[in-house]
Design a protein around this nucleic acid. Structure first.
Lengths: 372, 372
DNA sequence: TTGTAAGCGTTATCAG
DNA sequence: CTGATAACGCTTACAA
């Protein structure tokens, strides 16, 4: 290579990453190589102003010869734009989250935005600290804080970033918020099952303080109240959204003198653990006990018996959140989008005793997705 | 508030995010508020040099009064460090990926590193473009490119970033690489099943060109070769790692005049689809046909029958990748860590006909994780 | 059409 | 111990 290829920068010893030497080529190197000023190089690579065709070509040639990669941090500093969005999540576990992230990534890619992810924020301080480090690195934030006590942090974040609140309790004082119709979904699936008549019913709750869990609980309760005398006794079992606590709940149920004939689990993982625990004890689902879940994770239709549940399109939720954030809500909605709720579908499968009294939507979730 | 609270910056109209007005407080505001120079403020907030206790307190007071959030981009520009790592993935779908991301996030959090994620890079250009936009935004990259043809891009990226290659074919000319013992795992699970004696065996392959899929295929084939005369006929069915193609494969098998008595699926999703398809046609698993998977996704132990598979700790892989990248491999390994392979466990459950001839490890994956 | 130069918000190197 | 001030790599008025 006959020309200067920029300098090899040896990073300072404080550097954590084990960099040996890294080729660093700046706009200045390109300018020198092309025989123009750095301003012209900038204009060319950003296509931001009229540049002589010949000059333009020279610059592009130089840039590709040197394989120039613009520095994002420098751009950010001058433009006050990062072209990135941040996502703050409580925990990255479970299919629900990964689907949300997938949706976010998808919509972000479409809008040519990068995605910064930070998870496991149970407490206010964690969320706030994460948001803080994102200053100067993202243009906006998508925050999911289903637990109590994050309100203060959220309010503070809102003064610093455009933000969309996902599935959170937060009162949303004028902010953007997107949530799942937890209450509605729980109510509807419970109504469906209760229509068959059940004398004793149990509810397997989600984590205490979790907003989704609470909303679903409210929905179940409402359905039970409406059915009134039919379901006289209701047990509420504690759960934490994990499969294993479903297994534990099964054991609790087995110990009851009068077992429930239906159990509403606040999510699919718990429902699956519950079914497994019951089956191993020789209890038939749904013949002896009907079970329902929530979320419609991919596997719900493949367990035995296939799980009656409520479909939440987490991927779509992620996509929408991004669109809300960038203000491009698409043609379908021109409404003032302060608060939005994602509707859900009740998916009736065998675990609740079948599609009585009326047939309901069945899953179409079998398209050929590539999963790895 | 009696003091200047910084300026409200109205972002340029070109801005995509719907910012109204954003409080922007810089180190300069803090310096003015505290009555010191910006250099001193910097020293205090970074704790980078001795500062008079009184001055220090004044600065902290001013900073918190103004609620100063340092700008990451500016820091990056002067220090040449981002304190962030980038992750380039082929697709964010499926539990395997989400677990990898979880591991990455975990280890990154521990090392106080941010995580930039970019997925759906099927082709060389996509990977390269993503890496390019990360210049100045990350200190290093974790790249997963299981498909063919990414080699050129990877070589180019390596000149710009410290990088760890995940589960990739790449010849790794001196670079860091981490992969799963696909070959070994497939071989071992196949040997186990074949020990029961099978006259006809089928393999449900993963996507063409996918490195994991190819390695697993090699492993199965080797086991079959070794058993020799026992398994005379082997069918290789095409798959793409999705549940639905497992269902399709079941249909294909049902049409065969001589059905296989064992099927090795290259991942769990396909195995589950396969089992479902077979069962719906009245074929018993494992009595009529034994089935195995790969990955040991959470749900594998909950399907009916529980799935014999190969456990890959994807979360751990993500964590290790980060540690390799930051050169902190932990006390357990001081070996030259150019290439590393994650060992796998064969998990024998019912879907292959049980633990014959010798008992094998069973899943311990039932700890109370919180999944949502 | 192009070049010069002033920032952007920090950190780091000097003097004091 | 503290304060000026020069980078960092880029964009963008403003001049030429």
């Amino acid at each position: 290579m006959p020309f200067s290829r920029g300098s090899i920068r040896i990073l300072r010893s404080g550097t954590r990453l084990a960099v040996q030497g890294e080729i660093v080529i700046t706009i200045r190197d390109v300018a020198r190589e092309a025989g123009v000023s750095i301003a012209t190089v900038s204009r060319v690579i950003n296509d931001s102003a009229r540049v002589n065709d010949d000059t333009r070509r020279r610059v592009w040639d130089a840039a590709s010869r040197l394989d120039f990669w613009p520095n994002g941090a420098a751009r950010t500093l001058t433009t006050a734009r990062t072209n990135a969005i941040g996502v703050l999540l409580p925990d990255l576990h479970g299919e629900f989250f990964s689907e949300v992230i997938r949706g976010v990534d998808r919509a972000a890619r479409e809008a040519r935005l990068q995605v910064l992810i930070s998870s496991s924020h149970a407490d206010t301080e964690g969320v706030l600290a994460a948001a803080r480090t994102m200053r100067g690195r993202v243009d906006g934030l998508i925050v999911m804080a289903p637990d109590r006590g994050s309100q203060a942090a959220i309010d503070q974040i809102r003064t610093r970033f455009p933000m969309v609140l996902l599935n959170s309790r937060a009162a949303a004082k004028g902010g953007l918020a997107l949530s799942v119709a937890n209450y509605d979904g729980a109510y509807r699936v419970a109504r469906h099952v209760l229509a068959r008549g059940h004398g004793k019913v149990a509810i397997l709750k989600g984590p205490r303080g979790n907003f989704d869990a609470e909303e679903r609980l409210r929905g179940y309760r409402k359905a039970l109240r409406e059915v009134g005398t039919a379901a006289t006794a209701v047990d509420e079992l504690d759960g934490d959204f994990s499969e294993s606590c479903g297994v534990i709940a099964a054991a609790q149920i087995l110990r009851m003198t009068t077992r429930p004939t239906a159990v509403f689990a606040a999510n699919d993982y718990m429902a699956i653990g519950l079914i497994t625990g019951l089956r191993e004890a020789g209890v038939r689902v749904p013949a002896d006990i009907a079970v329902t879940g929530f979320d419609d994770i991919v596997i719900a239709q493949y367990v035995t018996p296939p799980l009656t549940t409520v479909r939440v399109d987490a991927c779509d939720m992620g996509e929408r959140a991004v669109r809300m954030l960038i203000g491009t809500t698409g043609p379908e909605t021109r409404a003032p989008l302060n608060r939005k709720t994602m509707s859900v579908d009740v998916v009736i499968r065998e675990s609740c005793g079948g599609a009585t009294p009326r047939p309901a939507a069945t899953s179409t979730r079998t398209t050929g997705r590539r999963t790895r």
